[in-house]
Computed example of a mutant assay.
Amino acid sequence: MTDRQRSDARRNHARILAVAEQEVAAHGANASLEQIARVAGVGSATVRRHFPTRQELLQAVLWQRIEVLCERARELTGAPDGGEALLTWLADLVTYCVGAKGLATALAYDGDPTGPNSCASAIEEAAEPLLRKAVEEGAVTPDVTVAELVGLIVGIAMVTEHHSEPQKAAERLFAVAVAGISPGS
């Protein structure tokens, strides 16, 4: 294979992945592979050569998004206000989960979502320093875990998924969860 062929393959892979992310955001985990190929400007065989199964394509889209969230957590770890940094990251997670349109749910049923190389483990590892700093500053109670916070966000995303304005509804529920329901909380 020549360097030209390899660079074309890399470009095709990146283009397919970018289009797949858009299509999954718009249509969920059942996004059409043929539509992805059409919009990416490649044939269906090219999509299948890069991603032999729908599951592999969905996992690549999910991992790309997870890597962005992990990097964001690492960036925010150095912020001066740990509580604010954690809330900013959780708000980013809300936005991601609302935009994923069932992708995380579709992937969760394939294998062990808590395995050592899973998305859940990557998220927890990246967000743990954020939570630890917020706890040290007294912004979060010490018994809260990243897994619980992520579970809360996933629940919010799932309950608002079919709302007429899912992002707005999810942001409102997140604000209620952060503020609490007791006056003076």
Rank of each mutant, 00 (worst) to 15 (best):
D92P: 05
A18N: 08
N12H: 12
P52C: 07
G41I: 01
D143W: 05
A40E: 09
P52H: 06
A127S: 07
A106V: 07
A91D: 14
L76V: 06
D143L: 02
A60R: 13
H50K: 03
T105Q: 14
E171H: 12
K101F: 01
G115N: 09
N12D: 12
L69A: 10
R38S: 08
T46M: 05
T141E: 14
W63S: 05
Q64V: 00
E71R: 15
S185W: 11
S121L: 09
A104C: 06
A37E: 03
D8R: 15
T53R: 12
H50Q: 12
E23Y: 01
G99Q: 02
A179T: 09
G115W: 03
A126H: 08
R6M: 12
D3P: 07
C70Y: 00
L62G: 05
E124G: 10
V68N: 03
C119V: 07
L33Y: 00
G99F: 02
E124D: 14
S185T: 09
E161G: 08
L149V: 04
E137M: 03
S44W: 00
R10S: 11
C70M: 07
A85P: 10
H162G: 04
G82K: 04
E56G: 13
K168H: 12
T141R: 15
N30A: 13
C70W: 02
V150G: 10
S182L: 15
T160N: 08
L69S: 10
A18C: 05
Q5T: 14
A170P: 04
E165P: 01
A25D: 01
V39P: 02
A104K: 01
R72Q: 15
I36Q: 09
A177V: 02
V146I: 11
T105C: 02
G41Y: 03
T53M: 14
W63A: 06
A126F: 07
A20N: 10
I156T: 01
A170M: 04
P116I: 09
I153K: 00
L62D: 14
G82H: 04
A14M: 02
L86T: 06
R65D: 13
R15A: 05
G78F: 10
G82P: 08
E84P: 01
G99W: 03
E137L: 04
A85T: 04
L93T: 15
A45P: 02
T77M: 06
A91C: 05
V61D: 05
P80E: 14
H162E: 13
V68M: 07
E67S: 14
A25N: 03
E21F: 00
E137I: 02
G99L: 02
Y96I: 02
A170C: 06
R72S: 15
K101P: 00
L131Q: 06
S182Q: 14
A79Q: 13
G115F: 07
R15G: 00
V176F: 09
R6P: 02
T145M: 06
S121N: 10
R4A: 12
K168T: 15
E171I: 07
G155T: 13
I123A: 09
V159I: 15
V154G: 11
K168Y: 11
L33Q: 12
A139I: 03
A120Q: 09
R4S: 07
W63K: 01
V176R: 12
A26R: 15
A29Q: 05
V98F: 09
C97W: 11
T53P: 11
